[in-house]
Amino acid sequence: MKILIVDDFSTMRRIIKNLLRELGFNNTMEADDGSTALPMLKNGGFDFLVTDWNMPNMEGIDLLRAVRADPALKNLPVLMVTAEAKRDQIVEAAQAGVNGYIVKPFTAETLKEKIDKIFERIDG
């Protein structure tokens, strides 16, 4: 399974990459915002997207919308990992078609639980 990690902070990308590796996902790539991530996704091959919301140029919510609007990507599972904690925003992400939403700071257990849940639903 190939996973794209999108966050403008390289420290957070490293943390998520390490956590995913502990969960057995070794094939990850990184992008620092939506505008870098979208062409990578369009090139194909990704099975899962983990994205932040607050990023320069193209925010995570716009990346999510672009993914859902692309016929080739519209079924890609998307997990949002963000510090954005307003209820309106969570509703907005849900309406835009997010598959999971984690607020920072988060724990390794939360990440595992949400990823399991997403794939359970997809497989089921």
Binding site: W53, N54, M55, E59, G60, I61, T82, A83, E84, A85, K86, R87, D88, Q89, I90, E92, V103, K104
Partner: peptide, 19 residues
């Protein structure tokens, strides 16, 4: 931007409807 960043206690952030 549509984003606010982390909620900081004792600021206007915390008065909004946040989780």
């Amino acid at each position: 931007p549509t984003s606010h960043g982390p909620i900081v206690p004792n600021t206007h952030d915390a008065t909004g409807d946040v989780v």
